[in-house]
Simulated scan of single mutants.
Amino acid sequence: MFVSALSFVLVLTGCAGGDEDTEPPSAPTGVTAQAGSATSVHVMWERATDDRSVAGYEVFQKGRKVRTVEGGRTMVDIEPLAPSTAYSFTVRARDAAGNLSAPSAAVPVTTPPATPDDDTPPTRPTALRGTVEGGRAVTLTWRRATDAVGVTAYDIYQADSRVHSVPGTATGARVTNLRPGTVYTFTVRARDAADNLSPDSPPVDLTTASDPGSGPSTAPTGLKATARKGSVVLAWTPPDTGAPVREHQLFLNGTLATTIVWGAQPPPGEVGYTFTVTDKPGTRYSVKLRARLPDGTWGDFSAQRTVVVV
C-alpha cells in the first residue's frame, strides 16, 4: 500500500510539472510618456497579451525599475523627477508565473523647467464635446485653458478617475478600452508645470454602442445633482422598462449608499431625491444611480455627476 501511494503522488507531480507556464506575455505597445509637471511624468501603454493572463506591468527608466502596477492598469505617474531633465521609459508585462515580456520600445520625455513661485491654477477647459466610436472608444475635444506660465498637460477623467493625459498643446484625446452599451461621463482638467490643477471642465456624457442583440440601455437618464446647504438634491428620469420603476440604488463615490423606494405608484417622468450631507464645505461627491428592472435585476448605471458640498 505504501509503495502504491508513493507512486500515485509521483505521477501527480509529473503531470503538474508538465503544466508549467514558461510562455512570457507580449511586449506592451503604444507606450507614451507625457510630462504632467516639472517633477512628474505620466506613462501609458496598450494592454499586453498572454496565453493565460497578464498579472502586472513593470516600468523602467533606462533599465532601472521605477514602478510596478497590477495587470488591470495601463498607466502610472512617475514622480518625483527633476525639472528640465530628459528621461526614457520602457514597460514590460509580467504573468502570474513571473515570466517577463521583452521591453517595449523606449519613449523619451523631458520635464519642463520648475516654476516654484507659481501657485495659480490654469483656467478650466471649456466646450468639452465627444464622439462615440463604436462600442469601445470615444474621441473628446475641448477649448484650451489659459495659465499665467503655461499649460503642460490635460488630464482626462472618467467618473472622477484619471484615465488619460495629453500634452498641453493638445485639444483632443481618444479614450479606448471601454465597454459596449455603457454610459461614460468625462471631464478634463488642465495642469501647469507647478502641478497646479484647474477646476473640472463641464462634463460630457457618452454612451458606447451596444453589442448586437443586447437590447436598449436600462440606465436612468438626465441625472442632475445640485448642492444645497446641508444637502444634495438629485433629479433624473427612470429608464423605460415597460413597467413602473419603484426602486433605485444610489451610489456615492462608487459605494452603495442607499436604496430609494417608492411605496406606491412612482411619479411619471422626472423623479427626485434629496439626501443630507454633514461633511465640510468643499468635499466632493461622485453620484450615480441604477434602477431595479421588472425582472428583479439591476439595470445599467446612469451617467455620473460630481457635486461639491457647500
Score class of each variant (00 low, 15 high):
V183P: 00
G18S: 14
V66M: 04
R136G: 13
V43Q: 07
G242I: 09
T176R: 13
S214M: 04
P83C: 06
A106F: 08
G71W: 05
T297R: 14
L128W: 06
W236N: 04
G296Y: 08
L289M: 07
T218F: 00
E247L: 10
Y87Q: 04
P212G: 07
T176C: 00
P220C: 09
A193T: 01
P216H: 13
S198W: 03
Q34T: 15
G282R: 12
S198L: 02
L12R: 11
P294H: 09
P125N: 03
P24Q: 09
V3E: 15
S165D: 04
R124W: 05
T131R: 14
V41G: 03
P83L: 11
S7Y: 10
A38P: 05
P113E: 12
A194D: 05
D192S: 07
T297W: 01
V76E: 13
G282T: 07
P121W: 01
P203V: 07
T259V: 15
A219L: 02
G56P: 05
R144F: 07
R179P: 00
A148G: 14
T85N: 11
P244L: 07
F301Y: 15
T283R: 13
S210I: 00
L197C: 03
A194T: 02
E270L: 08
G135W: 01
T226V: 13
G17W: 11
A257M: 13
V76H: 08
F251Y: 15
P199Y: 06
L178P: 02
R290H: 09
V188T: 08
A106D: 15
D211W: 02
T111E: 11
R290I: 01
F301C: 06
S302A: 07
P239F: 00
V233A: 15
L250M: 09
W262Q: 11
G30V: 06
V59K: 04
D211C: 07
A257P: 09
V66N: 09
A16Q: 14
L206H: 05
R228C: 12
V188K: 08
V11W: 13
S40G: 12
E133C: 03
Q158W: 12
G72I: 12
